[in-house]
């Protein structure tokens, strides 16, 4: 098993190298430069050149890439074009809130989607199965940002029971620790639900088909034949075997969650990675954009790795033969 994980990790190295090339090419070959954004029309050509020199934009692309890659290996992502602050510092202070929301929403996805999928599968073609299938289809097709707007209108504007922006109220100083936690929780309800929404549909569909596949297997028939109660057959025999592929899918859902963060953080004005990414795009803050692209890609690769390991755990054939 460790050999398999080690091999998987080694395979990630060239992949990551290729990804850095794509990122660098996309960012630097696109027309427009950070200097254009910072300078107004009146700026002299001389000042423009000075600025380009300062950022190292006057060097050939290959040299720029090499410099960047060498620094990247040392986790030195340079300084932001916008405020001159260390990029890594900027990103670090944004990570906790984004991570919190995504972990909470993963938990929510799991506790809603898996039971729905399992019940649909064990009662295939029942009313519950039909209704949940229809809901899943609608869920797939709903733009999450639109649902966010509707919920903001309903709970924030019409009913006035939930806050619609930021992660804390303006005046929290009067509240105790518990009050602050409650305030924070109230701010997170809508963002967590919205970021979970799309994946709930996907994962419940997936658990359903995974479960359907398992309950057709011979060993389930055997378990029934030897007189086990249906509850035990499902819980002890079927569910365990259906679970691991579901964990795999959770690993593969990382890119979707990252993309979603950009959208819901900008809707709810949450000061996380997604909002930082959007702001640095708007300001063409190249060092911050590139650092975040690399981090997102590493996270996605890590999710893939977790998925692969989960596969390896269920299916020894994959573990032994590699791919």
């Amino acid at each position: 098993m460790f050999g398999y994980i080690g091999k998987r990790l080694l395979q990630m190295v060239p992949l990551l190298f290729g990804i850095t090339i794509i990122i660098f090419a996309v960012i630097h070959l696109a027309p427009g430069s950070p200097v254009d954004v910072q300078m107004s029309l009146k700026t002299s050509a001389q000042a423009m050149q000075n600025l380009q020199k300062l950022y190292g934009l006057d060097k050939p692309l290959t040299v720029q890439y090499k410099d960047w890659l060498m620094r990247f290996v040392k986790l030195d992502f340079g300084k932001s074009f916008v405020d001159g602050r260390n990029v890594l510092e900027k990103i670090k202070e944004r990570i906790p809130i984004t991570l919190t929301i995504n972990i909470l929403s993963m938990i929510l996805i799991f506790i809603i989607a898996v039971p729905v999928g399992v019940i649909s599968a064990t009662r295939q073609y029942s009313l519950f199965d039909k209704i949940s299938t229809v809901l899943v289809f609608i869920g797939f097709s709903t733009p999450a940002f639109w649902l966010a707007l509707l919920l903001m209108i309903l709970f924030g504007v019409q009913l006035g029971i939930l806050p619609i922006s930021g992660i804390q109220s303006i005046d929290v100083s009067g509240l105790g620790a518990l009050g602050r936690l409650g305030d924070w929780g109230r701010h997170l309800i809508l963002p967590v639900f919205i970021s979970a929404f799309g994946s709930i549909a996907g994962l419940s569909r997936y658990s359903r088909s995974s479960m359907l596949e398992v309950i057709r297997q011979d060993y389930i028939r055997t378990a029934r034949a030897k007189g086990l109660r249906e509850k035990d057959v499902i819980k002890k025999h079927a569910l365990r075997n259906a679970m691991l592929p579901i964990v795999t899918i959770m690993g593969l859902s990382v890119p979707g969650l990252i993309g979603g963060s950009v959208i819901f953080e900008s809707i709810f004005s949450i000061p996380g990675m997604g909002q930082l990414y959007y702001q640095s795009l708007m300001a063409r803050d190249y060092p911050t954009i590139m650092a975040q692209l690399v981090i997102f890609a590493v996270l996605t690769l890590f999710g893939n790795l977790v998925a692969d390991i989960a596969y390896g755990l269920v299916d020894p054939r994959i573990r032994i033969s590699g791919r």
Partner: peptide, 14 residues
């Protein structure tokens, strides 16, 4: 291996 939406955003913003 790329979060596609993130990449699309990067290209379109630039």
């Amino acid at each position: 291996a790329f979060p596609t939406f993130i990449l699309i955003l990067a290209v379109i913003a630039i």
